[in-house]
Structures are given as C-alpha cells and as structure tokens.
C-alpha cells in the first residue's frame, strides 16, 4: 500500500523528493496543488479502492506523504 501511494505521489509531483522525505509538506513546497489533489483522490480510488470524496480532504490532514499513507491505510481497514 505504502509503495502504491508513493508511486502515485512521484507521478503527480514529478519528483523523487516524496520518497526521500516522507514528512515533506506537499502544499508549502508547491509539490502538490488543488489540481494535483484531485488527481491524487482519483488515483487513490482506482489504484487502492478507497473512495475519498472532496469533502474528506482537509489539507492539514493530507499534507505529507506519511499522513496520506496513514489516511489511506485507515480507510482500507474500514472497508
């Protein structure tokens, strides 16, 4: 799961930085923007099977690779 999420992030940000630093702030560094976020939600839906609506997305809870992985793991466990 972790690798899937990280690969999606590498794809979206076009940078390996997300793999090197799992606590990098994706929004402050400009790696991810609103557009990238929507892509992320759609990719997570198709690759990991988690259905995260836009309302679920609270920036402060999704702003680092580690937090996103934790979120996705929590959501898969709920299924």
């Amino acid at each position: 799961m972790k690798d899937t999420v990280l690969n999606i992030l590498v794809d979206l940000t076009g940078s390996d930085e997300v793999k090197k630093d799992l606590d990098v702030n994706l929004f402050e560094t400009g790696l991810l923007d609103s557009m990238g976020t929507v892509q992320l939600l759609l990719e997570l839906e198709s690759e990991c099977g988690v259905d995260a609506p836009v309302s679920e997305f609270e920036r402060s809870e999704w702003d680092t690779p580690n937090k996103i992985i934790a979120k996705v793991e929590a959501m898969t466990n709920e299924l």
Binding site: Q39, L42, F57
Partner: peptide, 22 residues
Amino acid sequence: FRDYIYMRLVFFLMKKKLVKNK
C-alpha cells in the same frame, strides 16, 4: 471557492473524462 467549486468541478470533469488536457 477552491474546495466547493474548483476542486469539485475539476473532480467531476476529470472523472467523466470530459476534458483530457490537464
């Protein structure tokens, strides 16, 4: 506006593949 208009519109258009170019 970002969360309720922009992101929802982009989400909808992307999911339905109505606009291909990012």
